[in-house]
Computed example of a mutant assay.
Amino acid sequence: MMEAAAKRPPALQRVARALTEDRQERLDREACRVLPLEEQLRRCLAQMRQNQMCFDLETEPELIDALIYEYQAIQSRYRYYQRKARAQGLRAIL
């Protein structure tokens, strides 16, 4: 793949780099976008489910440890969003 990129004319390389940078900027803007609290809670729940599925399938001790730490981080984020939701008077977000 790198060989194909090296064979491109310089003008094409600049265009490809500009498109890649533009795409990365859009992804960065989307990542920084503030999502509604309900969506944040739903994402945390989905991440916890996915983490649990990976944990159930994993056999390497180091990766199991990493999944445990990741789950704890997701739980902390979920508790934070729950506190914010309660403060705003939101109930029963699943």
Rank of each mutant, 00 (worst) to 15 (best):
K7A: 10
L63H: 10
A16M: 09
Q72D: 08
C44N: 05
C44W: 05
M2W: 07
I74M: 03
E30Q: 11
T59A: 07
F55N: 01
R23Q: 13
L63C: 02
D28S: 05
E38S: 06
Q40K: 12
E3M: 13
N51V: 01
A46R: 15
I68E: 04
I68H: 12
D56C: 04
Y78R: 14
L12F: 05
Y71V: 01
A16C: 06
P10I: 01
L35N: 08
L19F: 01
Q40W: 10
A73F: 01
V34S: 09
K84L: 14
Q72R: 10
P10V: 01
R17V: 00
Q75W: 04
I68M: 04
E70K: 03
N51M: 02
P61T: 02
E60A: 06
Q72W: 01
R42Y: 06
Q52A: 11
Q82Y: 08
K7R: 09
R79W: 15
R49M: 02
A5R: 03
G89E: 04
A5M: 15
V34I: 14
C32V: 12
P61L: 07
P61A: 00
P10C: 00
C44K: 09
Q72H: 07
A16K: 01
R14M: 02
T20Q: 15
D56R: 09
Q75P: 03
I64N: 01
Q47S: 10
G89H: 05
T20D: 15
R83L: 14
P61F: 01
R29M: 14
R86L: 13
A31K: 13
I93M: 11
V15D: 12
E39S: 02
R91E: 15
A92M: 09
D22R: 02
E21L: 12
E38R: 13
A92E: 14
E3G: 01
R33G: 00
L12W: 03
A6I: 06
R43L: 15
R77N: 07
P10W: 00
